[in-house]
Amino acid sequence: MLRYTLSRLLGAIPTLLILIALAFFMIRVAPGGPFDTERALPPEIEANLRAAYHLDEPLYQQFARYLGGLLRGDFGPSFQYKDFTVTELIGTGFPVSLRLGGSAILLALLIGVTVGTIAALRQNTRTDYTVMAVSMTGISIPNFVMAPLLILLFAVTLGWLPAGGWGGGAWNHMLLPVIALALPQVAYISRLTRGSMIEVLRSNFVRTARAQGLPERTVILRYALKPALLPVMSYLGPATAAVITGSVVIEQIFGVPGLGRYFVQGALNRDYTLVMGVVVFYGVLIILFNLVVDLFYAWLDPKVKY
């Protein structure tokens, strides 16, 4: 297990390098620069700015400088938010995105697995069709429609919940964005759970358990659920990536101070270092998370051994 983990980590290094290089050069060849503003800068000032951010160096040298900074955990200064470094911005934005995304995945798992299991137990009945249809709204209505609808209903009309902002992560601020972010994942997870649960329920050991007269509850919770969750576990990696992408929309609509919003603003402002920082940071995160999921999977599934 340890050897496997180490080799996976080592294998991640080229992946990361490719990721960094791709993002770095893509941003640099993009038209428009961080110092383009409607009031054109005097050339001297622009030259000074370029020098201050080392944009006057050859590209490969800038790349080396950037990699060197990364090794020291330094993402560089933000071009746009001049009072902060990118490391600081990620440091304040990530905990917010993590809470938001983490809660959304947990919620999606909870609802998705429940709905999927119910549907599987009542396969091809009206209950099955109904719960699956409802859970599928998340992938039928774009979240940029769902989110304002939720705000309109619960914040503006009913006045139960705040319409936006983060409030330091208070539950009432989190509720709506978490739901909006979780909905599409509910659809995928419930579909996966339903499929694998149907399969598991037909397997011999479940039949045996039933034949022994164990109560249905026990059969499902004790015997069927764990193997049925395996495909759901392997979906967690992609789900994380999806939630991260989704947060770009959700954070913007709810005014949540997370990384997704930085990314879009950064790309629009040509804040090279901030965009790079977010991409690299999330790249590392996805790689690590996939590893954790695989290890967890091995723990769940006795057939897999590393």
Partner: peptide
């Protein structure tokens, strides 16, 4: 394929669309 899987692709698509 594994390497490509680890890329935050939507981000690249956004960058592509923004820039080009």
């Amino acid at each position: 394929v594994d390497i490509l899987y680890a890329m935050p692709f939507m981000f690249f698509v956004i960058l592509l669309m923004v820039f080009f």
